[in-house]
Every structure is written in C-alpha cells, then in structure tokens.
Design a protein around this nucleic acid. Structure first.
Length: 288
DNA sequence: CACCAGGCAAGCC
DNA sequence: GGCTTGCATGGT
C-alpha cells in the first residue's frame, strides 16, 4: 500500500482486496450512497468522505493524512490481510464461488453506538427504508458538517438521543422500534460503552448487548461483528438462512442448526464468510 | 387486498 | 426450552 497527497486528495495505490461496491453493498452499513460518477459519499466517525476507485488506486477526497491514519485506515480494516482470509475460506467450494463475486469486501470497523441504533432499526425492515430512517435521524439530531461544498450530518450521540422522547422520534417513522432506540440510549447514558465489552468473550458481550430492548440474537450478532470486531460472529437473517439452506442443506434448518454449522465450518472466520454469502445471495447469483 | 422487509418481545405451552 | 402472535411503516 502506497500513500500520496495530491491537491488535498489522498491517493492510495497498490491496494488489494478492496472494492467500493462490494464494501458498501454487502449490508454492513447504511450511510454510504453511490454517486452518478461511481464514487461513494458517506458519513462515519463524525466525518464526511467522498471516495472513488480506479483499477489501480483509491482516492479519498479532501482528506488529510491525519484523518486517514486516525480514522479511515482502521474504518476500512486496512491492517487486515484479506488475501489470507479469502484463501482459507476458499477451501470451501461455495465460499470460493461467493468470493469470486464479492472478493473486494472489507468488514468496516464502525462506531458501536451507531451500530446499536442502526441494527435496532434494521429489524423486520428493508434496506432502503433502514437507510431512510437513519438519514432522517441524522438530519434531525446530528451535527452539521460542511464538506466539498455540501452539508452532511453526523450520527447523533447517545446523550443527544437520551434527551429525546417518543414524540421527538416520531418524524423519523421508525415505527415500533422508536422505544427500543430510547432504551439503548438509556443504557448508554448509564455507562454502557465500548469499554464495557473490551474484555468480554463473544458470548458474554452478546448477553450484555441483549440487555437492550430491541436487540435479539441476530441484531446482537451484527453489532458484535461490525461494532465490536468479533469476526467469528455469523449473523443469521432471512438471506443467510436461505443461502445456507440452499447451498449446504436440502431442507429448512433451525437458526440453532445454522449457527452450529457456521461454527464448525467457518469458526473464527464466520463473519467474513457471512458477508461473502450475503453479498452473493443479494446479488442474486443463485436465484434465491 | 394480502404479503413481505437484515426480528424482537411477550405470552403461551 | 420451542412455537405463535402483534408490531409501524412502506412497497409490491
């Protein structure tokens, strides 16, 4: 990986296993949008960013070396060798096939609080509407950012949301999930934070997360994977259930069975496997 | 009109 | 433990 600054833009050359469409369309994040020119603009970790890619390089617009090193390097999981992960998973025929479509996926290291709220909103919902609800929440209660001549909004802090009530949240149209968002804000107000989970095992961290109303088995797994770097986590949603049943079984399976399957098959790489399979299924490569 | 969408909580057995 | 039902809202 090679870095240079040119006209305030930060350009990365010699970067492998990195594809913006794969990264942003594999269901792990909700605040990145594709522009007509193929670039993406999003807000994360309190910063706005436009990012584009050619065959040989990635450009982060109007971005300092400090922001790259302090924020985006870790956010895009650049200190992680996906070549090894992919070759290990490719010993499985199905995964090898899935990786041939989504080989540029990277698991983003996202903000814990944003993950908690975003995946509470994701329950029994569809991705376009999840994005819409989160965007409304940010426009209403986030902080303004000016970037490249446009206005963007940060994800509102837990304290900001703690100061709100159900009527305040009504405009974002979160439906029955609004009260769960407030319950999460209450626990964070009472001290829950990234350090709460620092030394916990996957299972204990999951139990802790599920103290929040609105966080069950699947939502907890998403937060563990994207917000707490628990890469063995294998979130099982309707898509993953379908693709696993279709590719590895001949009949419907319980969630328990699929969890057991993931643990035995993918082990500590479960999270990566889940992302490749999700992208594979969503891109409709197997007619699900 | 019914049915579904990255599920979950509560209530039942 | 596992199974069923109601839940807000918007799209097909």
């Amino acid at each position: 990986m090679n870095i240079e600054i040119k006209n305030k833009n930060l350009i990365i050359s010699d970067i492998k296993d990195f594809n913006l469409d794969h990264i942003f369309e594999c269901g792990q994040c909700f605040r990145w949008n594709k522009e007509p020119d193929g670039s993406y603009i999003g807000v994360a970790m309190g910063k706005a960013l436009k990012i584009s890619q050619t065959a040989s390089s990635v450009t982060l617009y109007d971005t300092s070396k400090e922001d790259f090193e302090n924020i985006w390097y870790n956010y895009f999981d650049m200190n992680n060798d996906y070549g090894i992960i992919k070759s290990t998973l490719s010993s499985d025929k199905i995964l090898k096939e899935a990786i041939s479509y989504g080989g540029g996926i990277r698991i983003l290291n996202q903000d814990l609080w944003e993950c908690v709220v975003s995946f509470i909103i994701s329950a029994s919902n569809n991705i376009p509407r999840i994005k819409k609800i989160i965007n409304s929440l940010c426009e209403l209660y986030g902080d303004k950012i000016e970037y490249l001549g446009n206005t963007y909004y940060t994800f509102p802090s837990s304290e900001k949301i703690y100061s709100l009530n159900l009527d305040d949240l009504a405009p974002i149209k979160a439906g029955f999930r609004d009260k769960y968002i407030l319950s999460a804000a209450k626990l964070f107000h009472e001290g829950m934070c990234i350090d709460t989970f620092k030394n916990l095992t996957y299972y204990d961290a999951k139990k802790e997360l599920m103290k929040i109303k609105g966080i069950g088995n699947k939502v907890a797994d998403c937060i563990l994977l994207f917000g707490l770097s628990k890469r063995n986590s294998f979130p099982i949603d309707v898509w993953i259930k379908r693709v696993v049943e279709y590719c590895y079984f001949t009949s419907p399976q319980s969630i328990r069975e699929i969890e057991k399957f993931s643990l035995e098959k993918f082990g500590s790489l479960g999270g990566y496997a889940q992302q490749y399979l999700f992208f594979y299924a969503r891109e409709n490569k197997i007619g699900l």
